[in-house]
Simulated scan of single mutants.
Amino acid sequence: MELTIVGCSGSMSGPESPASCYLVQAPYQGRTFTLVLDLGPGAAGALYRYLDPRQVDAIALSHLHPDHCLDLCAFYVAARYSSTAPWPPASVYGPDGTPGRLTRAYDVPSVDGAASEAGPGIGGYFRYQVWLPEQRIGPFIVRTVRVAHPVEAYAIRVEEAVPGGGSLVFSGDTGPCQTLVELSRDVDLLLCESAFLDGDDLPTGLHLCGRQAAEHAEAAGASVLLLTHIPPWNDPEQVLKEAQPHFAGSVQLAEVGARWTIGEPQAALQ
């Protein structure tokens, strides 16, 4: 399977990157199946660099903070009103309450108080699915676990369901937690948030620093660690420097447009 970094900025879009968004693609039934992990601000438009967004089969939301989900509103606008609309409704996987969350984000009453548009609206347009501990999404077996964050948040493991298929774990947003380590056991690539710089007074249950991300990858036996979700006010090179001594494998920074082929023998940057 192939991973493409669409957006890797943390907590908001940045000067060089949209907020959280990643393409995971693999062959399926004679075509390419496309799963989008998160759809943060700026990501919907950036998808056009890599594919026709009409081809997106499924969207997976790690949690419902705005920097991870709000460009589903922009995606919906294109699906309803672009020159190629209407698009087939994609499946949207997320925490309980996802349709209501997106409805509140999108809907604005018209001047007379009536509905602002005809049709089902964003809360009824997509095929919404609540996260299960394990489910099949196209060519992928997808497992999720709750992680340490102030809202209902999930780390997501994606495995291609073929012999020798690759495995990827996306941490979503999380503070230090053993559930992320367990989900990431022997994974080919751990795409891990690293929002904090290291320090003695790091908040608990919120985010990881580079060192902590590396410690999680080392404990899990991951092959490759890819650091992401670094906010614009932090220096990515410093995050990388803090991580490297704590992980024996390859540790690198996520960069917009980078593509990884994940599978045997290991992930390789293209």
Rank of each mutant, 00 (worst) to 15 (best):
Ile59Leu: 13
Arg104Trp: 14
Thr4Leu: 07
Gly40Leu: 13
Ala60Arg: 00
Val111His: 07
Arg49Glu: 14
Trp87Tyr: 15
Gly113Ser: 08
Thr32Lys: 06
Cys69Val: 15
Thr34Pro: 05
Ala43Cys: 10
Trp87Pro: 00
Gly113Asp: 08
Pro88Thr: 01
Pro15Phe: 11
Ala60Trp: 00
Ala85Arg: 01
Gly123Glu: 08
Leu37Gln: 10
Glu16Ser: 14
Pro89Ile: 00
Asp112Met: 06
Tyr81Arg: 11
Val24Asp: 02
Leu61Tyr: 02
Asp52His: 13
Val111Glu: 08
Pro53Met: 10
Tyr106Phe: 15
Gly123Pro: 10
Pro109Gln: 04
Ser91Val: 09
Ala58Val: 14
Cys73Glu: 04
Val111Lys: 05
Asp38Glu: 11
Phe126Ile: 00
Leu35Thr: 05
Gln25Val: 08
Cys8His: 11
Thr4Cys: 08
Arg127Glu: 06
Thr34Ser: 13
Pro18His: 07
Ala74Val: 15
Glu2Ser: 10
Val6Asn: 03
Ala78Pro: 02
Tyr106Val: 07
Ala26Arg: 06
Ala43Trp: 08
Pro15Asn: 08
Leu37Pro: 00
Pro99Glu: 12
Gly119Ile: 07
Pro99Phe: 10
Ala85Pro: 04
Thr34Ala: 08
Leu64Gly: 04
Thr98Glu: 01
Pro41Ala: 12
Ala118Arg: 12
Leu3Cys: 02
Ala44Glu: 09
Arg54Trp: 04
Ala74Asn: 09
Ser62Ile: 06
Ala90Asn: 03
Tyr76Met: 02
Arg127Ser: 06
Pro66Phe: 15
Gly7Ser: 06
Glu2Cys: 05
Glu117Met: 14
Gln55Phe: 10
Thr98Tyr: 02
His68Asn: 12
Ser91Asp: 08
Gly100Val: 06
Ser110Pro: 03
Gly97Val: 13
Ala118Leu: 14
Tyr50Gly: 08
Leu37Trp: 05
Ala79Gly: 04
Gly113Thr: 09
Phe33Ser: 02
Ala85Asp: 03
His68Met: 13
Asp67Glu: 10
Tyr125Arg: 02
Val108Trp: 11
Arg104Phe: 14
Ala44Gly: 08
Asp57Arg: 00
Ala115Asp: 09
Met12Gln: 12
Phe33Arg: 02
Ala74Glu: 11
Ala90Glu: 03
Tyr93Ser: 00
Gly30Cys: 07
Ser91Lys: 06
Phe126Tyr: 09
Cys21Ala: 15
Gly121Met: 06
Gly94Phe: 03
Leu61Cys: 07
Val36Lys: 01
Asp107Ala: 13
Gln55Thr: 14
Gly123Gln: 05
Ser20Trp: 03
Gly7Thr: 09
